[in-house]
């Protein structure tokens, strides 16, 4: 997917553990892991809101759009 989740970067910046974030946001560590590894298909606004609040950041700090896939396709031609 072209959307990259930078939660682990923000966690490192805030020196916060995944466990702590999961508790603050109110999701399971498993779900947080799904989000971090990029396996998630969607994220609720309420979850995003809670993550931003816990990490004191903007949604753009967590989510990033990358055009790498399209760039790779273009490189082939």
């Amino acid at each position: 997917m072209a959307i990259i989740v930078n939660v682990d970067v923000m966690l490192a910046k805030r020196k916060m553990s995944s466990q702590e974030l999961a508790e603050k946001v109110g999701i399971t560590p498993v779900n947080l892991s799904v989000l971090k590894t990029g396996k998630a298909k969607a994220i609720r606004f309420s979850t995003l809101d809670a993550i931003c609040k816990a990490l004191n950041c903007q949604p753009g700090d967590i989510l990033e759009y990358s055009d790498e896939e399209n760039a790779d396709e273009a490189d082939k031609f």
Binding site: I27, L32, K41, A42, R44
Partner: peptide
């Protein structure tokens, strides 16, 4: 269901 399960 998969979509629902992978919605965080």
């Amino acid at each position: 269901k998969e979509d629902q399960d992978l919605t965080i």
